[in-house]
Structure formats: C-alpha cells, structure tokens
Amino acid sequence: MQGFLDAVTGIASESGFMGIFQNPGYLIMIIIACVLLYLAIVKQFEPLLLLPIAFGMLLANLPFGDIIHMEFFLTESGHPDFVSVLNEGGLADMLYLGVKLGIYPPLIFLGIGTMTDFGPLISNPKSLLLGAAAQLGIFTTYIGAKFLGFTGPEAASIGIIGGADGPTAIFVTSQLAPHLLGAIAVAAYSYMALVPIIQPPIMKALTTKKERQVVMKQLRTVSKTEKILFPIICTIIICLILPTAVPLVGMLMLGNLMKESGVVDRINKTAGNELMNIITIFLGVSVGCTTSADTFFNLQTAYIIALGLLAFCFGTAGGVLLGRVMCWVTKGQVNPLIGSAGVSAVPMAARVSQKVGQKENPQNFLLMHAMGPNVAGVIGSAVAAGILINMLKGCI
C-alpha cells in the first residue's frame, strides 16, 4: 500500500498540474493560447498562422513538457549550439533552426510572390510612394523603443511590427533580437488580424468626407512584358543598393517571376501551395513554442505589445497623410484612403480601403487602386528590414 501511495505521490509531483501550481503564469498563457485559437477558428483572424502559433504557445506552456530548449539558441556567441540541438533537442528545436537561420521567412516570401500581382503598382508607379510612407511606423517606433531603454537591435525588431508583415518581423527579430521573438510574433500577427478594426478610425480621423468620396480613374492595362521585367529590374536595383535585402526581396521577386513568366507552372504551383503550406506550419509552431510563461510575462512584453500597436497606427497614418498630399497635388484625382493600404497586410488592407471608400460613396471602387500601395508595402517592409539589419547587425 505504501508503494502505491509513493507512486501516486511521485506522479502528482511530476505532473503538469504541479507545475501550474508552482507558476500560475503557465495557466494564464494557456488561457491566452485558447483565446488566440478562438480568434483563429471562430473569428478567422489570420488563421493560417495564428492557429499554429497559438497551438505552439499551448504546447510551450504545458509544464515539464520541454517542447523547446531556447538555451540552445540564445548563446553568448549568438550562434545556435548545434551539438546540443542534434543530441538533446526535440522536434520543436529542429523546426526552430529554420527560424534562427533565417530560412522560413524568405521561403514564405517566395510563396507570396507567386500569388502577387504587381500590375496595379506598375500601372500607377506613384503608389510606390504610399507604400514607402507607410513604413513611417517602423522608424518612429524604433526611436520610441530606444527612448524606453531597448537596445538598437531590440528597438528595430519592435519597430518592424509597423510594417504589418509577420514573416518580415520574424526574419528581422531572429537576426537581431531572438530573445524577443515570441512577443514580437504574437504582436505582429495579432495586429495583422485586427487590420479591419484598427485602420478605419485612423482613416476617418485623418481625412475629410469629401476626400473619402473621391472616385479614381480606371487603371491602364499592364502588358505581360512589363510584368516579367518588373521583378527582374526591382531585384537588380534594390539588391545592388541594399544587399541585406536580398533574402526577402530576391525570393519575393523570384516567386513573382515564376508566376508572370508562365514557363514554370509546376514549380510555381508548388511554391505557392505545398511548399508555402509546409513552411507556414513549421514557422507557426516553432515561433509559438518560444512564448513560454518563464520569458513572456514581464514589463518588456507589455512595452512590445503597446509599441507594436503604435507602430501599426503610425504606419497607417503615414500612408493616409501622404495620400492627402497626393490628393491636393493632383487636384482631387487620388483618394487618400488608398494610402492606408501601404502597410503590407495583403490583401486585407486594400479591402479595408475599398470598404471604407464605398461606405462613403457607393460609386467608389478602390480595391485595385489600393492594391498598388499594398504590394508596394510588401517591398517597402522588406527594404526597411534590410536597412535595419544593415545598420544594427554589428551591434549584437
């Protein structure tokens, strides 16, 4: 009988319930993970990545599960301890190598490229300026984060949330501040999912009713030759000026060239479907596994969540304000609402521009006009990432 009681006591002391009793933070993180799962499944907020991230968060906060060993990656040298990962690591450790080594985000960009139509941007090159203006949130938040005491690499990783591009945020953070990856990834994808809620109040506050009612002329038709030349020329120009942008911009343009050339239909479909789906699972689960209660619950995380929202709001505002300037310069030919699509949440931000504009004027069809700044924002966030990495890589 005593042996049975000892066995029961031993199981109880080593169970996850005892871990939750010792650190109630695990229970709070499990609840947060369940809320995110609810948003992904029921509300369908960015479900493709929010669901695996949330489930990874759930796994990471089941006490004594040891799903991932971040000490193998957060070493003094800044490089992963490959020997420990290979000898002692589990599945999540292996998957996280793709994040730490910067493999997953460029492959996600490859898939995005196969699904992106740069036609609206080529048809209206001025929309590139709106995509650039929407990166205002990245650099203003970088300055704000440094003011709050974050290091340069940490501030850059927080600021990149303003680009509203999850893979870019993960890429920059994995290079500059991997210890912040969990909080930044959750913030980035949460705000991307909340685009339809966050953006409309800002758009309305910064524009007049008359400006929101502006009807834009139909875009010209873009030739196949232009669509083929665009990714080639973009890659050469951007990557010669900013070599650190090669992984993201290069893969984005390669995917788009595969789509527009029409000569590699088989691998184009693989990159945009099977490969992207596999990488999305690996990326989401491994990033979610970094959000343990041991490292997530602190004042730093609260600052990251708040600064991420600020970055996103400033990015939206930057695009809208430049849209107003363009509206004034063109004497009412540009609807400033399309500036909000300069953040790279494709195509959700463009749909929000369309929805807000049509509510003001039923004759307004802004979707294709907004897609120009929207895809420009994808390029802009990748360029901003390259600039930040180039500036701060040596500071680590």
Rank of each mutant, 00 (worst) to 15 (best):
Q135S: 10
G308V: 04
I20R: 04
I304T: 10
S174M: 11
L110Q: 06
S292E: 06
A188R: 00
K224G: 01
S286Q: 01
I279V: 15
I396M: 13
T208W: 03
F230D: 12
V246Y: 14
Q44W: 09
S261V: 01
I138E: 05
V263P: 03
V352Q: 08
P201I: 05
N390A: 15
L59R: 07
A349T: 02
M70Y: 07
R324G: 14
S340Q: 07
L27Q: 06
C234N: 12
G288E: 06
D265H: 08
L37P: 00
L110K: 12
F64I: 02
Q218G: 13
V186F: 14
I379T: 13
G319L: 04
P243W: 09
V325T: 13
P243K: 14
P196C: 15
A33E: 07
S127A: 09
V343K: 04
V343G: 12
S13H: 03
P196L: 09
T295M: 04
A145K: 09
L62S: 06
L136Q: 00
V35F: 15
K100I: 13
A54H: 04
I158A: 00
F45W: 15
I11H: 03
E360C: 12
G394I: 01
V222W: 03
I241H: 04
S261L: 05
E274Q: 12
E71D: 15
N361R: 02
V85C: 05
F55P: 01
T207V: 10
P52A: 15
A92N: 08
P247N: 03
G342V: 10
L128F: 12
E14T: 11
L366D: 05
I11D: 01
S261M: 07
E360A: 14
K331N: 12
A185Q: 00
G315L: 09
P120T: 02
A169Y: 00
K146P: 05
T207F: 01
A33Y: 11
G380D: 11
F64D: 13
I389P: 11
H69R: 11
F150L: 09
A60P: 07
L283H: 02
L321S: 13
H179I: 09
L148E: 05
A370S: 14
N23V: 02
Q333K: 14
P63K: 04
F147G: 05
G90W: 02
A205S: 14
T270C: 05
I237Y: 03
P80H: 06
M203W: 03
A183R: 08
I67T: 03
K227Q: 15
L180P: 13
G111Q: 10
C395A: 15
M203H: 01
I112W: 11
A205N: 01
L39N: 12
K269W: 06
G386L: 09
L181G: 00
V383F: 02
L59H: 02
Q300Y: 05
P247R: 09
L252G: 06
K210C: 01
